[in-house]
Write a protein that binds this DNA or RNA. Structure first.
Length: 271
DNA sequence: CCCGATTCCTGTAGGC
DNA sequence: TGCCTACAGGAATCGG
């Protein structure tokens, strides 16, 4: 499930083929994603130059010579770079074809992803307007989390997954960073001290950075641009480890549903 | 406004 | 072996 590290890994994989390219064509086989792909997208993109590929929250932001694209991977979206001879398979919903003849192909079995065309600056698009801070930027601190949480009533796990607070943290990295910080995921976010939030902010940054460095996590669907999996899965402390021993104390890892998402934690190490 | 519940979707895993 | 059901979850939307 693509969270911040998986989006970054995807962007790094696409960039060598996409940045600086001219879009020779777009082939769309399935327009019904999270929102329908607009009918004139092929025509709008034809001949346009790709200036840069960036990230905001879990969106891939493609900067074009004017305007741009917002691409979300949803739950099961991934890109691959293939040759023009490669036949699209089921769930390969669209291709960007560059002037170098490279095909950048999007696959998304569950179709929760999106491809949005922006006439003007994509950073001004409404979809990006409600996002909170970037976790790897300097303004993401324990103080920030502490201040944002004081008046809120939800569990800390739901709080750090709230994209209007901090972006890019999904179910996997929320579970992992709370374990590293020794915080119980069900604890009310307003009842956590400044020093614990300092730890948590640092652990969120550590977990995300470590994952980026090994190409992200592969659980089920996410694959890197070259089709190989990310390797962060081997470093997971709690996610998906229900019943297995905690690496720190040996107690069995517990799973509970918190805010409609399965959550994994050590009941002994996390309080 | 806030927050929990529901919804979209399909591949996979587990039970019988 | 095959069928059925539950489950996975990002994020928009709905309802209390």
């Amino acid at each position: 499930m693509p969270e911040l590290p998986e989006v970054t890994t995807t962007i790094n994989g696409i960039r060598p083929y996409f940045q600086g390219a001219v879009i020779a064509g777009v082939a769309i086989r399935e327009r019904r994603l999270r929102w329908p792909i607009r009918a004139d997208l092929e025509q709008r993109l034809q001949g346009r130059k790709v200036i840069d590929i960036q990230r905001r929250a879990k969106y891939i932001v493609v900067i074009l010579d004017r305007g741009g694209l917002l691409i979300h991977l949803g739950m099961t979206g991934s890109f691959r770079v293939v040759t023009s001879q490669s036949m699209p398979e089921r769930h390969d919903h669209f291709d960007f074809i560059t002037d170098a003849g490279v095909v950048i192909r999007y696959r998304d079995p569950r179709r929760f992803g999106s491809l949005i065309y922006c006439e003007e600056d994509p950073y001004q698009h409404e979809r990006l307007s409600k996002f909170g801070v970037e976790p790897l930027e300097p303004d993401f601190t324990g103080t920030y989390l502490y201040q944002m949480s004081r008046t809120r009533k939800l569990a800390v796990k739901a709080f750090i997954m709230d994209q209007s607070v901090v972006v890019g943290v999904g179910n996997i990295y929320a579970s992992e960073s709370l374990f590293k910080a020794g915080i119980h995921p069900r604890r009310k976010c307003a009842r956590i001290s400044m020093s614990r939030y300092n730890n948590l902010a640092g652990e969120i940054q550590n977990v995300l950075t470590n994952s980026i460095n090994v190409g992200g996590t592969t659980i089920q669907d996410f694959v890197r641009i070259d089709g190989r999996p990310g390797y962060f899965e081997q470093q997971l402390s709690v996610y998906g480890r229900s019943g297995e021993p905690c690496h720190h104390c040996g107690h069995a890892i517990t799973t509970r549903v918190i805010a409609q998402r399965s959550s994994f934690f050590c009941p002994q190490c996390q309080t």
